[in-house]
Nucleic acid binder design. Structure first.
Length: 411
RNA sequence: GGGGAGAUUCCCGAGUGGUCAAAGGGGGCAGACUGUAAAUCUGUUGGCUCAGCCUUCGUAGGUUCGAAUCCUACUCUCCCCA
């Protein structure tokens, strides 16, 4: 088997391939141009988007030519795959803005050089498509009967599917054709929910250009307790530090279930396979250290080593014995005017203001249930007042439950 | 175009004039146990100036001492027929 494919397989990336031997032979013969698509439907990528891009990096490092396709055109419609409801329509301005932000995030992760790795935006060929021409040239090759047999559309037939969403597959197939024509792209990789769309693109190219292209999909990554990957209290685990701080990002990986450690090390880090396996097979306290390693590695890849170090340090300070919050710079910090503390402030109010509790009722509940701490001391009275005496070195540490910390900095 | 069903708190889903901030489950949060894990058990889960008050049951009106529950109109969704 081709070396690059072997790496992907060892690391658990491969779910399905349209023609394993054919692809392997093609890749052995020389650099293959391939692409991953991603629709800019939000302002930031989240970790769920990243599996194909980790795979992209592996292939790129193996000498193949990577295209990251930003779906500035397809985002105007919305892919029904894996969705149970129609997507919200975004304005064109929003999509363009999202596209740019996502392009930057990908650039930071992949490092586009414009030759062996670059981006494309399908807006360039989709935005001004002529409907009649499109139907004549592309539409004829699609069978509605066939499309309806796809899982993605069949499901939606029960809940409702609009015509524009139904067209998504044609557009994605057309993307592949365009990338083949423009850049000689021969391989499309993506999440397994894209299988139907990928296969459709391959068939289109075969019919129109008489050329064999390939598709490769990755498993949909879930946590071993069956939840979707990357879910936090606040929603998805975003790459944008403004949406998910590096510390929160780090903590997500730090708190992964034992059973997921090996798999995540293989997929979300570039540590050697043997090391991933050794770390992931550890037990008891050793597995805990492996989680710390996992968290540091992934955080470093996304946010850089410096941020990863800070997050690690903060986590150790808060969770290690006898640690202080003073040097835990990465911990979310809330700033408050010194005057307000001098006047005295209700603990309840501070928990709400700092963002640890969404409402005063929740803050009260937290105190009643014994989960509210100020400077690691349990708050026992609902009406607890805080003043200067709680401040140490200009800082006051709030904790909600076992893991959620906020530092309050008095200025 | 015709006929039918429906819209309930984060989600699913009960409720059909007062005892409803609304059963049950899921999810979330907290506590116990632990390893910042899993499993398990317990509590909790609209807001507030909290023994009380306020806002919620698609939207807008109406009936009533009193409505998520009845009436009217509207909006949206689904199903069947064309």
């Amino acid at each position: 088997m081709n070396r690059a494919l072997q790496i992907l397989q060892e690391r658990g990336f491969i779910q399905q391939c349209t023609d394993f031997e054919g692809l392997s032979a093609l890749m052995d013969a020389g650099p293959v141009t391939f692409y991953v698509g991603c629709d800019p439907t939000g302002p930031s990528l989240h970790i769920g988007h990243m599996v194909p891009f980790f795979a992209l990096r592996h292939l790129h490092e193996a000498g193949h030519i990577a295209i990251a396709l930003i779906g500035g055109g397809t985002a105007r419609i919305g892919d029904p795959s894996g969705k149970t409801e129609m997507r919200k329509m975004l304005t064109y301005e929003q999509i363009d803005e999202n596209s740019e932000r996502i392009r930057k995030q990908l650039d930071a992760f992949i490092g586009f050089d414009g030759k062996t790795a670059f981006t494309a935006n399908n807006k360039d060929w989709l935005a001004n498509l002529n409907y009649i021409d499109f139907l004549r040239d592309i539409g004829v090759h699609f069978s509605v009967n066939r499309m309806l047999s796809f899982e993605a559309y069949r499901k939606r037939l029960e809940t409702g599917l609009t015509f524009i969403e139904f067209n998504y597959q044609l557009l994605q197939s057309y993307d592949f054709l365009q990338l083949y024509d423009r850049h000689g792209c021969r391989l499309q990789i993506g999440g397994d929910d894209q299988w139907g769309n990928i296969v459709a693109g391959i068939e289109l190219i075969r019919r129109i250009r008489g050329v064999e292209t390939y598709g490769l999909t990755f498993p949909l990554v879930t946590t071993s307790d069956g939840k979707k990957m990357g879910k936090t209290e606040k929603g998805a685990l975003f790459l944008d530090p403004a949406l998910t701080s590096p510390y929160e990002f780090f903590q997500y990986w730090r708190n992964v279930t034992d059973a997921d450690v090996k798999r995540f090390l293989l997929m979300f880090t570039f540590l050697p396979v043997s090391e991933c396996e050794a770390l992931g097979s550890a037990k008891d306290s050793a597995i805990n250290q492996a989680k710390e390693r996992l968290a540091w590695e992934v955080t470093a890849l996304i946010h850089g080593k410096e941020e990863a170090d800070k997050a690690l340090q903060a986590a150790r300070a808060l969770f290690g014995k006898g640690g202080t919050a003073g040097d835990a710079d990465a911990v979310p910090t809330y700033r408050i005017a010194a005057k307000r503390i001098q006047q005295g402030i209700l603990a309840i109010d501070l928990f709400v203001e700092s963002g640890l509790c969404p409402s005063k009722s929740e803050a009260r509940r937290l105190i009643q249930q014994g989960g509210a701490f100020v400077n690691e001391e349990k708050v026992t009275e609902l009406e607890k007042m805080l003043d200067i005496s709680s401040i140490q070195d200009g800082i006051l540490l709030l904790r909600a439950g076992k893991k959620r910390y906020v530092r309050v900095r008095v200025e």
